[in-house]
Design a protein around this nucleic acid. Structure first.
Lengths: 337, 337
DNA sequence: CTGAAAGCGCTTACAG
DNA sequence: CTGAAAGCGCTTACAG
């Protein structure tokens, strides 16, 4: 493999000049630059990253951390976000190191190697993530961003989707279709995304003159456990048992909506005629189930790309004030509403 | 951050000695070693990978390449294999760099950066992968392994599951349940895994005295296109139209079996009573569909771990003769058969 | 068992 | 605009 010395020698310049050329620095005579370029071409010279990294005191790595549980879910939500980051990274000089972290995370023992050895320039945390991990990164001064997550009382750099407006719009569509008694089913109430979706639901109903606090009491089914089809099933059972004339359900996400759909089927309740159902996320299943699920599409790849942009910006400028990128979502009309 | 000089000075030894200690080399007096260790501890010293890599002329990276199409599929087959590799890599000193490659791959333009810059010590190729990529790696002398794939006329280091025996056993179970007219539905006939499963199917029927070439002609539905539920649907239609007393179907994988199941439902044919169905892979859906699908379980994490072992062995020993690791599979009895 | 020194392949002031 | 030289933080013969 050719190195910088070979190139310099063959081009009859110093290695400093070669370095200037490959880094596109100014102050290189056009003729010199061209000559060096042609030699680089001829020798098929590629600079060695470990040498660059050593000299510039960077690592060239970005960590991507996600719960093992989340990564192994059927839906590839976080894998797609990762892929979005990877797409961006391809054209740059960072590698994305994907790793998972387990439920009971202990910073002393379970630290990914790239953190232990300070072998990343920054880290992206996808979804819910141990608080102790976040604190560790803060203490160590490692630049990081939160994706689709947030912590109360803590302002972090983050990328989120527009949960509030997505929910607001979805519920608006339900109302426009003539429904009046619209339930909400949700789990993971600790998750900021769910909170915002719930807010969007309530605010829309209020703005449409439909909901007040009594209404929300009756029509909300919220559990503080991880969302799942099971929550949807329980939610339907509960709402139905209340005898409140339920004619629509807005679920905090598609997974929950899947459970709701299957439970309604059991009761022989027609969707969307009797009860319409709308979810959030647009997971793959949503377009394939029967009836296909109306939902709010979350552009995962775009979230990944924006995450890359934000994180590299922060790495380059560690002392900037924390910012939050909000990714637009889009209501998708299908058969269930 | 402490470096090797700080440690050496504080421990009153040379950096060579510190290096020996951190690399667990012999020829260090116990007392010296202990002293150095305690200083390392006190200073929280971690060696810098870019320096190590530069000095040892390694990269510390392993590439993991998969088709974009495969990575984005619902089923997380290859993601799980990746995760298995990652689990192994955690305790070692390699990072796994995951990237995707597109359908029409051009080695001149679409080379992942870690290949272009020779920034990996080895590469794992997961699933079907462009032949030109494999040739590129061979020409460049970059150590690589094939996972769940193979190329005719080319002996490569590879990790595969025991497709033949898995199919053989599955069909054996079908026969034992009393079925006699057992169809085979498959796509991706170019894929060695499918070929081996088909062979297992035929050999079992032969050994049970059920199948001959005429039988296989009648009972086989094989397409040379990517497997999908659609293939399963077509297969059922075809086999049924033949009026051959079909009473069981062995599908080349679960995805195909899903299509078969749904099509049988349309014809109101009872599974498994009238026609039993068995798949291969044990994807997540298989235990959740109705009826749940009997299948052959492929241990993805284990494949990943074995892949890591094999690849690192090859990296350490590039001139060893190519070897193939075969991972055991397991028949899983569920409701569909 | 230990240390001095060269070397890995880059970047970056500094001097000209 | 260009080059000589120091430096990044390690490893590795070599000599003792």
């Amino acid at each position: 493999m050719a190195n910088i010395n070979n190139v310099a020698k063959k081009a009859r310049v110093s290695i400093a000049t070669v370095s200037r050329v490959i880094n596109n620095k100014k102050y290189v005579a056009t003729k010199t630059r061209e000559k060096v370029m042609s030699v680089i071409e001829k020798l098929d010279y590629k600079p060695l990253y470990s040498a660059i990294n050593l000299a510039t005191k960077r690592t060239g790595n970005i960590g991507f951390i996600v719960w093992g549980e989340h990564f192994s879910e059927i839906e590839k939500f976080y894998s797609q976000i990762f892929l979005g980051m990877e797409y961006s990274a391809r054209d740059s000089d960072y590698y994305i190191l994907l790793t998972t972290v387990k439920e009971k995370f202990n910073p002393k023992e379970d630290l990914p190697r790239f953190l232990k050895y300070k072998d990343v320039d920054g880290v992206a945390l996808a979804g819910r993530v141990p608080t102790s991990l976040i604190e560790y990164l803060e203490n160590q001064g490692i630049p990081f961003i939160l994706i689709d997550y947030g912590i109360p009382d803590k302002v972090c750099n983050s990328v989120v989707m527009d949960n509030y407006n997505g929910a607001f719009q979805a519920v608006d569509q339900i109302v426009k279709s003539g429904k009046k008694n619209i339930g909400f089913i949700g789990g993971s109430y600790f998750h900021p995304s769910v909170k915002d979706r719930y807010r969007g639901y309530k605010d829309n109903l209020k703005s449409n003159g439909l909901g007040d606090s009594e209404y929300f009491d009756k029509f909300s089914f919220l559990k503080n456990v991880e969302t799942s089809p099971e929550i949807g099933i329980q939610g339907v059972k509960h709402l139905l048992s209340q005898n409140i004339g339920l004619d629509a359900i807005f679920c905090c996400n598609d997974t929950t909506a899947m459970g709701a759909l299957s439970e309604l089927k059991k009761y022989n309740i027609k969707v969307p005629k009797e009860v319409s159902v709308v979810g959030f996320d647009d997971i793959t299943l949503s377009s394939f189930c029967t009836p296909s699920l109306s939902t709010v599409r979350v552009p995962k790849l775009e979230i990944g790309k924006e995450s890359y942009r934000l994180l590299t910006e922060i790495i380059a400028n560690p002392d900037s004030t924390p910012q939050t990128s909000i990714i637009d979502v889009e209501y998708i009309q299908r058969r269930s509403s």
